[in-house]
Every structure is written in structure tokens, then in C-alpha cells.
Deep mutational scan, measured.
Amino acid sequence: TYYTVKSGDTANKIAAQYGVSVANLRSWNGISGDLIFVGQKLIVKKG
């Protein structure tokens, strides 16, 4: 599943929404920190 980042989103918020850990969200998308951008497409695997 892909999720498009919206204004006000955070890695924590997206992870919680899908029931996954922030560490997994980072791993699936090659993100090292919490910096995400509006319009960015993230791979999300439901927990």
C-alpha cells in the first residue's frame, strides 16, 4: 500500500494510523530520520 504524505502528517502519525512501528515505516522507505515531505509517497504495510 502507498500513502501520500499530507500537510501536518508525521512519521509517528502515519505509523499509528496503519498500526505499524515508525522503525518499520522508515525501513520500508529508506528514511533515516523523521523528515518526510508533503506529496511524498510512502510504502506502508498494514500491521
Results as ranks from 00 to 15, higher is better:
Y18E: 06
G39M: 03
F37Y: 13
N12A: 15
S32L: 13
L35W: 10
S32C: 12
G30Y: 08
L25T: 01
V44Q: 01
V44P: 01
Y18S: 05
G30S: 10
I14V: 08
T4A: 05
A15S: 07
L35M: 13
D9P: 00
G8Q: 05
A11R: 01
G30A: 09
L42W: 01
A16L: 12
N24W: 08
R26A: 11
S27C: 14
R26K: 13
I14H: 00
K45S: 14
G33L: 14
L25P: 01
S27G: 08
T1H: 13
N29D: 01
V44G: 01
Q40I: 06
R26P: 02
A16G: 08
T1A: 11
I14C: 00
V22P: 07
L25S: 00
L35R: 11
G47P: 15
R26M: 15
Q40D: 07
Y2C: 12
K6L: 09
G30M: 09
V22K: 05
A15M: 03
L35P: 08
T1E: 14
T1N: 11
V20Q: 04
S21E: 08
A11N: 04
S7K: 13
T10H: 04
V38D: 06
W28P: 01
A15Q: 01
S32F: 11
R26N: 08
Y2Q: 07
Y3D: 02
S32N: 13
T4E: 11
S7W: 13
Y3A: 04
Q40Y: 03
G30T: 07
V22A: 08
V44L: 07
K46N: 12
D9A: 00
T4Y: 12
G8Y: 05
K45A: 13
S7N: 12
G47D: 13
G39V: 02
W28Q: 03
N12I: 14
K41H: 10
S32T: 14
K13I: 10
Y18D: 01
Y2N: 05
G39A: 03
Q17T: 10
L25I: 09
L35I: 13
R26E: 15
K46A: 14
A11H: 07
Q40V: 06
G19I: 04
I36W: 06
A16Q: 12
G39N: 06
G47R: 10
R26W: 08
I36Q: 02
G19K: 08
K13N: 10
I31F: 14
D34A: 07
T4S: 07
V38M: 07
A15D: 01
V5P: 02
I43N: 04
N12V: 15
N24G: 05
V20D: 02
L35S: 12
V38S: 06
K45D: 11
K6H: 07
R26Y: 13
K46P: 15
G8P: 02
A23T: 10
K45Y: 14
I43Y: 08
G33I: 10
R26G: 06
K6C: 10
V20E: 05
I31D: 05
V22S: 05
S21V: 04
K13F: 09
A11E: 09
N12Q: 15
A15G: 04
S27T: 11
G33H: 08
G19H: 09
A11G: 04
Q40T: 07
V5A: 07
K6G: 07
V5L: 00
A11F: 15
Y2F: 11
T1K: 11
W28F: 04
S7C: 15
Q17H: 10
K46T: 13
Q40C: 05
V44T: 05
G8W: 04
T4D: 06
A23Q: 12
Q17C: 12
V5K: 00
S32R: 10
Q40W: 04
D34T: 08
I36E: 03
G47W: 11
N12M: 15
G8I: 03
Q40L: 07
D34L: 08
Y2T: 09
K13C: 14
T10S: 08
T10Y: 03
I14K: 00
T4P: 03
S27I: 13
S32Y: 11
A23C: 11
V22G: 04
T10E: 05
A15C: 08
T4H: 08
G8S: 06
L35N: 14
L35T: 13
G30K: 10
N29K: 00
G47M: 12
G47L: 12
S27K: 14
L42H: 00
K45Q: 13
D34C: 10
G8C: 05
N29S: 02
A11M: 15
A11Y: 15
K45T: 11
V38F: 05
A23I: 09
V20F: 03
I31M: 12
I43F: 08
K46M: 15
I31G: 05
Y3M: 05
V20G: 01
G33F: 09
T10K: 04
F37A: 09
G30H: 11
D34F: 08
N29V: 01
A15K: 01
S21F: 04
I43E: 05
Q40R: 06
V44Y: 03
W28N: 03
R26V: 13
V5N: 01
A23F: 06
I36P: 05
D9W: 02
